[in-house]
Design a protein around this nucleic acid. Structure first.
Lengths: 178, 178
DNA sequence: ACAACCATGTAAGTAGTTACATGATTTA
DNA sequence: TAAATCATGTAACTACTTACATGGTTGT
């Protein structure tokens, strides 16, 4: 039950249509909560049924474009959800399973895959660092900006972790053993 | 498609029954890939249908207990899967969404929840450190042990990350803003 | 005999993914 | 007018979760 609240947040920040929402997701909230346009359309329908958002046919724009706006009930629901307590999700990564498998059935191509992932993490880290420089360079930030910065720094720390871990893993996998 | 391979790995390490498997999961692979006993029973059935494992009625043990053993085809499948390349999962945490929501709809009880989570991460880290001391204290480890250690160290780094991040977040949330 | 627990399972629902369908507008 | 692309949606499937059902064994 997180996607509807992610959408409410994005729509309060800026009302827009389903496809615009999907695109904005790809380059902001989507870094931390990915969603496809199919999921987004389905969820927008549910939000409207629940009376949390309203849709207006957009005068500007093509097709049967609709613009969604959050209603007071939606704001109230978002506030309720935000204050809820939720346990942290445990680490859940197929790679850990594959390493355990490799440990008992002998060498496979995991090493090559870790190298590939290492490159991806470095790329992602570079992107986050660029976003940080662009959006949070000021020394005095508003509370809103500071919270957004916190989210981005979790992403940065996450990528740094996996870069560090991958390098360590490669060192182990390269060491010839007796 | 990861749980079947997690089960194959666990069953190669040591053949056992569904419930035993569920219990072993809770205190090893489950730290990184949680599964309920319902998931495990269903998946064991599928593995048997696929001819990857066989089940034998256990002479020792109560009830209609069955013991599962991995067949050669299962080993082959596990090897194939382990060498597959898979992209890292992006960070996916409701807390990031709740912080973004808090940034625009104003203060809620997120701070209290981060404090609670901080305590949970510290507890989990202590557990992992204890496991590390117990199982990987030796300086000279076999390749198998070294790989298992890598998995555990990912868990340790993960908890350390969230402890560090939580402390940072609390500092931000405590600072009174103009 | 009955409670406690061991062991396996079914059923229903939610969330997320993948593939495809449909119509409307722009542009070449 | 045909192709590209914008915009919204359906359908089918898989993974996971939650709640419940059933039968067997052990201990009192």
């Amino acid at each position: 039950m997180s996607l509807p609240h992610a959408l409410l947040t994005a729509l309060i920040e800026h009302p827009c249509s389903g496809l615009e929402l999907a695109r904005r997701f790809d380059r902001s909230i989507g870094y931390f909560w990915h969603a496809t346009h199919q999921q987004i359309y389905r969820e927008l329908g549910r939000l409207e049924d629940a009376g949390w958002v309203e849709s207006l046919p957009a005068e500007s724009g093509r097709g049967r474009k609709k613009v969604y706006r959050v209603l007071p009930a939606g704001r109230k629901e978002l506030k309720r959800w935000t204050a809820e307590s939720q346990d942290p999700r445990p680490l859940r990564d197929e790679l850990m399973l594959r390493l355990r498998a490799e440990a008992i059935i002998g060498p496979t191509a995991v090493k090559e895959d870790i190298e590939r992932r290492l490159a991806m993490h470095r790329e992602r880290l570079a992107l986050y660092r660029k976003l940080e420089k662009r959006d949070f360079a000021d020394t005095a930030l508003s509370r809103e900006k500071e919270l957004q910065h916190l989210v981005l720094s979790a992403g940065i720390m996450h990528e740094e972790l996996w870069i560090e871990w991958s390098e360590k893993a490669l060192a182990v996998l390269l060491t010839p053993k007796t």
